[in-house]
């Protein structure tokens, strides 16, 4: 367990963490403010990646692809809100689950129809290709650092927006008690649309940023959706601060667990059982963490609602 490996894995963990944060932020706000379970949030992340690949192919420029894909992801999110989700806000959670699950099936298959089932790739923009030497014997890809930095910047901007603007104040108020905000004369439908559109764009942004690292394929949003739910539940639903902290914790625990658990287990057991048990335990680690957090704090670390 060398220091370089540890540093690399911490950076990888941070990268997963900020990625999860970008997705979880929208999810937790939509859930906290609108009381709407949006399972389709994961496919919006996938769509962001596909749109980036498409617009990159059309324009040949990563930046233009990024901007156009963001706009298209926003437009598509608002279309979904208008066509489907709007009719389900005041309905039972389970109606929302079945409808958004239907949207997942449709879009996962839809991208296969349009772009084919084979994984696509997006090249890393030339300016950020290559690696940088962080310390002796440690080369780290520049793009991954860009992903981490952009996630952190998005987090800071989001914090400023939510904590220090009028819209942000309404969003926080909405997460605490939406009917009361509506009763005070705020157009809650418009607030919902803003929150929803913003969340969609963040998820799309996450998809675009990781498209050069991961392969872009149908179903790539499903696993990350479950992880994002783990994050918002650990953080406390409706809390941006909670989502940020929980995302970093989950990202680090998952990544470090996967790389080091076999070595750690070997301290207390024989090498061969450690190699069998290790990977399973590593996959389980974040769920163990979630169960533990919920056992001690049944509404997450920073619950937004004062129930």
């Amino acid at each position: 367990m060398s220091t370089t490996l540890l540093v690399v894995q911490i950076l990888n963990g941070l990268q997963l963490g900020v990625l999860l944060f970008l997705i979880a932020a929208g999810l937790t706000l939509v859930f906290g403010v609108m009381d709407f379970i949006n399972l389709a949030h994961g496919v919006q992340y996938m769509l962001g990646a596909y749109l980036a690949v498409m617009f990159y192919g059309l324009t040949g420029s990563f930046l233009a692809g990024l901007v156009l894909a963001l706009l298209a992801a926003l437009a598509f999110g608002l279309l979904l809100e208008f066509a489907v989700f709007r009719h389900l806000y005041d309905r039972d959670h389970l109606d929302q689950v079945i409808a958004t699950f239907g949207v997942i099936l449709f879009l996962n298959q839809g991208v296969k129809l349009v772009w084919g089932a084979a994984p696509l790739t997006l090249p890393i923009p030339e300016l950020f290709s290559g690696s940088v030497r962080l310390m002796d014997g440690l080369l780290y890809p520049v793009w991954r650092l860009v992903v981490i930095a952009s996630g952190l910047v998005a987090g800071v901007l989001l914090y400023g927006l939510v904590a220090h603007t009028r819209v942000g104040m309404l969003v926080r108020a909405g997460a605490t008690d939406a009917p009361m905000v509506s009763a005070l004369g705020v157009d809650i439908r418009r607030l919902f649309m803003i929150v929803f559109g913003f969340g969609t764009m963040l998820a799309g942004f996450a998809g675009i940023m990781v498209a050069p690292i991961l392969s872009v394929e149908p179903g790539m949003g499903d696993t990350i959706l479950i992880l994002a739910f783990v994050v918002i539940v650990i953080g406390g639903i409706g809390s941006i601060r909670g989502a940020f902290l929980a995302a970093l914790i989950v990202g680090l625990v998952d990544t470090l667990g996967r790389s080091f658990i076999v070595d750690i287990l070997r301290l207390v057991m024989a090498p061969s059982p450690a190699r069998t048990v290790g990977p399973a335990l590593a996959s389980m680690l974040i769920y163990l963490l979630m169960a533990l957090v919920l056992y001690v704090r049944p509404t997450g670390l920073f619950p937004a609602k004062g129930r």
């Binding site: 979630m290 169960a291 049944p298 509404t299």
Partner: peptide, 28 residues
């Protein structure tokens, strides 16, 4: 015993957590 301490969405997620633990145990 553990899951029923929580309510609503938190119950959904903690049952998911145990489901996943069973899944990964089986894979190992």
């Amino acid at each position: 015993i553990v899951c029923l301490r929580t309510k609503g969405v938190y119950f959904i997620m903690i049952t998911l957590a145990f489901g996943q633990m069973a899944f990964f145990t089986a894979s190992s």
